Amino acid sequence: MAGRDRSARDDRTRGATARRAASADGPGRRGTGNRPAGDRRTPRTPAAPVPADGLVVGDVPPVARAAGVALVLAGLAGIAALFPSYLVVGGQELVLGRGLGAVLVGLLVPVASIAVGAGLAAGRVPRLGLAYAGVGGALALGSLLIEVYRGSSSTVRPGIEVLAGERVLTSSVTTGAGWWLSVAALALTVLAGALAAASWGRTVMEDRGALDPARPGLAGAAVLLGVLTVLCLALPAADVPDRLVDDPSTGLEVVVEQQGPQALLERPGLALLGGLLLAGAVVLASVLAPSLRPRLAAVGGLLAVAVTVLAAALAGLRDAVTSDDLEWTVPGAGLLAAGLGYALLTVLAWRLRRAAA
């Protein structure tokens, strides 16, 4: 009996101790007590990190993604065009990717289009890709008309031309797979530009305006580079040098001009229209690209102009280096300087993000 009494007292003591501990652990006590049934507060979660320049990106419309896909296809077609037969001019077969230097120069625009187009198709920083596609499409329209002229009607008025690094006479022209792929690449770039223009207003992307104070300076520099580019494009980047011959009647040396490649605005028909459109697009893009919002859109527009001008300048330098009949000209050097200037403006617009961080 005594043992059972002690056991009952011990049970009552343990129960009282448990009730006092439970009453001490009330709703005001943090970390241990149970939350009251009527308290519906939820624990606070840390705020999502905000980009340094306050970049806000909304939903990307399907048309904008389609522009990115068109850019990728244009880049792939441009790479494929480097290797098969381009044109057969006067019985001479031409290939765009003749040699390592020609391949590297020919890869500049397609690789940039693939990189930017893939990001746009994936929905990343969409207005950068749309600006690149819009400016690149405007520049490609003139080049497309010039390319069509080379493969279809350049024999109407035969003349000396520099095609794929070779000095040829356009007495007869036969198109090859490389020419068709080049036309397809330019046409897809124009299509990407049209899709970018259609989807620009429906694509939401904005930032804090870190580039706004520098936009007037960028625009002024870009316009000067645009005028320089047009002046340099008006003359061949690689030309045939004049010859010095002895005049048998006087015994003096006489300068004899040799027929060289046709300048941009010397070609007739579609080529002349294409040259005018290309020159106008360069100046217009130089004015509009620095004003595009947000900052990354300006980067995309300037990048499109930079790679296009650099590709044209490096093509002229390649022709002068690889051909014994051609030499590099002052307009070719000016075109290279303009391309490097556009590249510098692109880098400056990109680096302002870090300055504003």
Rank of each mutant, 00 (worst) to 15 (best):
G274Q: 08
A289V: 05
A271F: 00
A271K: 01
L303S: 06
A238M: 03
E206H: 10
G301P: 02
P236A: 05
G217L: 05
D319V: 03
P290G: 08
L276H: 11
G251S: 02
A306W: 00
L277R: 04
A210M: 08
V309H: 05
V256A: 13
A313E: 11
R295P: 05
P268C: 12
A222E: 04
P241S: 15
V240I: 11
A312D: 07
A271N: 12
V227L: 15
L224W: 07
M205N: 03
L272E: 14
G316F: 01
D239R: 09
G209N: 12
G269Y: 06
G260N: 01
G251K: 11
A289W: 02
L264N: 03
L270W: 11
L235V: 07
L317F: 12
G209I: 01
A219W: 01
V245R: 03
V223T: 10
M205G: 08
D207P: 00
P261W: 05
D319A: 15
L225G: 07
L228R: 13
L273I: 14
V227N: 02
L211I: 10
L270V: 12
V256Y: 01
L303R: 09
P261R: 00
A238E: 11
T250K: 13
E266S: 09
G301M: 07
R295H: 06
R267G: 02
A285F: 12
P294H: 05
A219F: 03
L231F: 14
P213V: 01
D242V: 05
T308G: 12
L272D: 12
D242Q: 14
L284Q: 01
D212I: 13
V254Q: 14
L273E: 02
G220N: 12
A304R: 03
L292Q: 10
A238Q: 04
D239K: 00
L224I: 11
V305W: 06
R295G: 03
R215I: 13
L278I: 03
V230S: 07
A285M: 11
L231K: 06
G275F: 08
V307Y: 07
G301W: 04
L211G: 09
L284F: 10
D319P: 05
A221Q: 09
G275M: 12
L265E: 04
L252T: 15
L265R: 04
T250S: 15
A222S: 10
D212P: 03
L276E: 06
G260Y: 09
A297E: 03
G217Q: 03
G280P: 13
V240D: 11
A311F: 13
G226F: 02
L317W: 05
S291K: 05
L292Y: 04
A238P: 06
L252R: 12
A222C: 06
L265K: 01
G220R: 14
A313N: 11
A221P: 00
E253K: 15
P261K: 01
A219S: 05
P213A: 09
G275T: 13
G300R: 02
V282K: 09
L310S: 11
A210P: 09
V282E: 00
V287E: 04
A298N: 02
R208D: 09
A221S: 10
P213C: 08
